[in-house]
């Protein structure tokens, strides 16, 4: 076979390769390096083998943070996905309302994460926060600093406020791509609102929904900044999710080895779960 190769293409992708190397591969290798060694500073390293991994995998603390995080992600998905779909379905399709709605929806996404945390920290305070004050005056003894349930409620509410827009925007993009003829045909067939959703809108949205679920899962599973700002992981360890725990081990206790091993395990769990979501959803899609 005769084939001419054009090697110039490699020059084009070189900047990206370098960027990826510096931003991902090299830090990752450092982490791997730390995870199998023990260090006391001064650049002295001792081989530790799989010791840190065994320690992390058997640690009660890791298990509870993992379960906490899984529950959190599950609740987030269970609220944000249906809510996002409902909002997207009710957004206008044409006219002046479209840009207004889109801008309103995009607003929470534009706010820096630690600012979101700060907003909610203030918002939830009983003395000066609107939310806290309102709940208080309704007779609820609201206190996210001391009551774990209230802390969870606040963190979840904050995440829903912050991220449902993303689901809305993705679903909206899926919805507007459905040709008018489908709605007309459904009208002619006498389909109910539910049937239109079930047989036209949902099937046409399932690709963007897959992306929404994956993004929201990965993000919520890695959540750090907002709960750190609002609750700092407390009260007790009740809102200490994996990433907060990780930072505590690495920075707070300076246990670099276990922290590195934990990051790798953490990374693998995210990868595994994302893969599971992806295969389940695409297979379901193919079957239908």
């Amino acid at each position: 076979m005769e084939k001419t190769w054009n090697n110039k293409a490699w020059f084009m992708v070189l900047p990206v390769l370098l960027l990826v190397a510096f931003s991902a591969v090299i830090p990752l290798m450092t982490v791997v390096n730390y995870s199998v060694q023990d260090t006391f500073g001064n650049n002295q390293f001792f081989w530790a083998g799989t010791e840190w991994f065994t320690e992390i995998l058997q640690s009660e603390r890791f298990h509870s943070a993992l379960i906490r995080n899984l529950i959190f992600s599950f609740i987030i998905l269970a609220i944000e996905i249906p809510l996002g779909i409902i909002i997207a379905l009710n957004m206008p399709r044409k006219g002046l309302g479209v840009p207004v709605c889109l801008v309103l929806m995009a607003l929470p996404l534009l706010i820096p994460w630690n600012v979101v945390g700060t907003i909610w920290q203030v918002f939830g305070r009983v003395d000066i926060g609107l939310l806290g004050h309102t709940l208080e005056s309704l007779g609820i003894n609201y206190n996210y600093v001391q009551n774990p349930l209230h802390a969870w409620f606040t963190v979840i509410l904050m995440d829903v406020w912050h991220w449902t827009s993303l689901v809305v925007l993705l679903c909206y993009a899926g919805l507007v791509s459905i040709p008018d003829a489908f709605y007309q045909a459904a009208k002619i067939d006498g389909a109910s609102r539910w049937a239109v959703f079930r047989y036209i809108q949902l099937p046409k949205m399932n690709r963007v929904l897959l992306i929404a679920v994956l993004l929201r899962f990965m993000d919520s599973f890695m959540i750090y900044t907002e709960p750190f700002v609002v609750t700092g992981g407390g009260p007790g360890n009740s809102t200490t999710f994996l990433s907060i725990d990780l930072v505590k081990i690495a920075i707070g206790q300076f246990d670099l080895g276990p922290a590195a091993a934990m990051s790798i395990v953490y990374f693998l769990i995210i990868l595994l779960l994302s893969w599971v979501f992806y295969t389940v959803m695409t297979n379901y899609d193919a079957e239908r």
Partner: peptide
Amino acid sequence: DVPTSGSIWFDGKNVTGVP
């Protein structure tokens, strides 16, 4: 596109991989 096999010639010149 580049063919999986075979070649393309233009005025007697092999242009198979020419973009």
